[in-house]
């Protein structure tokens, strides 16, 4: 294929735009000065040590991980049967039903967080963590419905019928035949849901309480009052985790899993 130079240069410029800002963060994480400077003076790992010494960061990291895991699991539990029913059965208002399940995407995250705060926490006096979990469940449910749904759309349901004819009841057939064939869709959905819950700010913004603050919220609050390389160090650690996840996904599901 013949190359087009102008297009190549343009694309390099765009990729630089996407990457240079992140590279600058990486560099600033190693500077010795107490505030962020670029280019850096000296070289140190102390800001990384600082991250792990900070109870706020460590606690919120654990909370975010737990939250993302629970929210994703609940969403899978509720979402897989719904996605199955939507793609398997012909019924009236199928499109409407699907849009209903995807509707949390239409509602801005801030609004989701705000309305749950008002309704569940202020009116129903629900504990903050449960409220947070609900908010994140709503954020990730559409991912499950969409990704699992699209892998069910490609599933040939005559295979399920074959299982019935061989003596499986409906539930057995689902677990023995359908589920094993959509595992890659479920894995992709899990990963996307987890990452999106972990990174979410707008919903979490309203749902914080004593000792309950997610990592992004903690980070955001920290940035508002401090300008030292600790934030850079946290960023580098999170980016490393992202690279590890991307690598694993690339080796197992293929990089296309992220684009679903």
């Amino acid at each position: 294929m013949r190359k087009n130079k102008a297009l190549l240069i343009f694309s390099i410029f765009v990729f630089a735009f996407l990457f240079v800002p992140l590279l600058i963060i990486v560099v600033t994480a190693f500077g010795e000065a107490p505030t962020i400077t670029f280019p850096i003076k000296g070289f140190t790992f102390k800001w990384f040590a600082n991250v792990f010494k900070s109870k706020a960061f460590v606690d919120s990291l654990i909370l975010s991980g737990k939250l993302a895991l629970y929210a994703t699991l609940v969403a899978l539990l509720v979402g897989i049967p719904a996605a199955y029913a939507i793609s398997r059965f012909s019924m009236k208002g199928k499109g409407l039903l699907k849009s209903f399940f995807l509707s949390p995407t239409i509602v801005p995250g801030v609004v989701v967080g705000y309305s749950i705060f008002q309704f569940a926490i202020l009116k129903l006096h629900m504990p903050v963590f449960q409220g947070l979990l609900l908010g994140h469940f709503l954020v990730v449910l559409p991912y499950i419905i969409r990704v699992v749904g699209s892998s069910l759309e490609q599933f040939d349901f005559s295979i399920e019928e074959a299982a019935w004819s061989l003596g499986c009841n409906k539930v057995q057939a689902f677990f023995k035949v359908v589920l094993p064939n959509i595992t890659s869709g479920i894995s992709a959905a899990f990963m996307l849901a987890f990452i999106n819950s972990f990174n979410n700010i707008p919903v979490s913004m309203f749902l914080k309480g004593p000792g309950i603050s997610t990592l992004p919220t903690t980070l955001m609050n920290y940035i508002e009052y401090n300008y030292d390389p600790t934030v850079s160090a946290v960023s580098v650690l999170l980016m490393l985790a992202t690279i590890v996840i991307m690598f694993i996904v690339e080796k197992t599901l293929g990089i296309a899993a992220f684009t679903k």
Binding site: P21, L22, I25, S235
Partner: peptide, 20 residues
């Protein structure tokens, strides 16, 4: 992969990059 990476990076970090 290069295009996806920023998308998976927390939006706080991405905003922080521009503060820098």
């Amino acid at each position: 992969a290069i295009s996806i990476f920023p998308m998976l990076t927390n939006s706080v970090i991405r905003a922080f990059a521009w503060i820098n």
